[in-house]
């Protein structure tokens, strides 16, 4: 496991880093000289998980590569809120082309750097779940199977938020979106559809795949650092709650991501060469209903006659994850 909790720093063990921790154990984000790859003044909503997640990840990558980094960006919220012509919030070399070709653009950037003999310059491609799991999936799969030297980061907020919250193939079952309205016999997004891209990436046998959330900064930064130590195709999938699309309070972005991890509905793990190598254990297991209740996109499950069968189905998905990835600490007998 790349990140281990340091014991006996009770007041600071799980914080970004307090005065009791030696500076090497602090998160990159605590550094007053952190790069701030995504600068202030961007137009993301209050409490945006994606804006937070991207600064966490790119700042960590900038530190890992000593600032030798180019970023290719897919179309989506991240591109729109950061770079309305002629302004930009990016403080890294940054390219935007089309919605679906980001992985291919990144592949080209990496090839160009290699040809120019500048292989110390590293390339990251990034996009939302729409640009990654739907529109850009063909280019991404190609990048994986050729094992191109690119880290692809997907910021998963589980729908097309920028255009008005339409369903993507990463939208979870039962969630309300503008295209999966909470009407009819089985309201919200259908069960049995969609895909979990991290396992598809693993199936390509690429050297490194990881998931993370914005609720555990130490873990997220350690994974980006680890990814930058490896050459070849790498994939990190970060859960970034969207206050607008999920119907959560802007102050709850991190809390709801934490609940996704603590319920098991979003497994946080690391895999190398197609095999899971570590998981971030659940600290205090929570029932799925507690997670769902925080979000207005599931409010139809908790109306006058609560849809207990649907909630039970979602609980089952979480429980399956817990079993499959071993998310609970083994009980000492």
């Amino acid at each position: 496991m790349s990140y281990q909790i340091k014991k006996f720093y009770q007041t600071g063990t799980l914080t970004a880093g307090n005065r009791l921790l030696p500076s090497e154990d602090h998160c990159v984000q605590t550094d007053p000289k952190r790069h701030n790859s995504l600068d202030s003044g961007h137009r993301a909503c209050q409490g945006c998980g994606e804006a937070l997640g991207t600064r966490y990840a790119i700042d960590a990558a900038m530190k890992a590569t000593n600032g030798q980094l180019i970023v290719a960006n897919a179309t989506g919220c991240l591109e729109v809120f950061s770079t309305p012509y002629p302004e930009t919030s990016w403080r890294v070399p940054w390219v935007h082309s089309l919605f679906g070709n980001t992985a291919a653009v990144a592949t080209g950037l990496a090839a160009a750097m290699r040809v120019k003999g500048k292989s110390d310059i590293r390339v990251i491609a990034q996009g939302g779940d729409g640009g990654t799991t739907d529109i850009g999936f063909g280019c991404l799969s190609g990048m994986f199977e050729r094992n191109d030297d690119v880290l692809y980061i997907c910021y998963d907020n589980q729908a097309y938020m920028n255009t008005g919250i339409q369903r993507s193939s990463a939208t979870p079952a039962a969630a309300r979106t503008a295209t999966t309205m909470a009407v009819g016999d089985s309201p919200g997004n259908a069960f049995g559809q969609g895909k979990f891209l991290p396992t598809i990436a693993m199936a390509h046998g690429i050297p490194y795949v990881a998931t993370a959330t914005v609720s555990d900064l130490h873990d997220l930064e350690a994974k980006v650092k680890r990814a930058m130590e490896i050459r070849g195709a790498r994939y990190i999938h970060i859960l970034v709650p969207c206050p607008l699309g999920w119907g959560t309070a802007s102050c709850d972005t991190i809390r709801v991501a934490r609940m996704a991890k603590e319920t098991g509905i979003f497994p946080v793990f690391e895999a190398e060469n197609g095999e899971v190598t570590s998981v971030l254990k659940i600290r205090k297991k929570q029932p799925i209903a507690a997670y769902l209740k925080m979000q207005k996109r599931y409010v139809h499950l908790f109306k006058k006659s609560p849809k207990t069968d649907v909630i039970a189905q979602l609980q089952e998905i979480a429980d399956d994850n817990i079993k499959k990835y071993g998310l609970l600490e083994e009980k000492c007998s």
């Binding site: 006996f8 880093g17 005065r19 984000q29 605590t30 993301a44 409490g47 937070l52 600064r55």
Partner: peptide
């Protein structure tokens, strides 16, 4: 060290880290 430091900053850097808008200034 088990003290929670209730209601008084102990310099954990969380606020500085979690702001999506880089709007927290670290004074040292």
């Amino acid at each position: 060290r088990r003290c929670l430091s209730c209601g008084n900053c102990f310099g954990c850097n969380n606020c500085y880290s979690v702001c999506p808008d880089n709007a927290v200034i670290k004074l040292g």
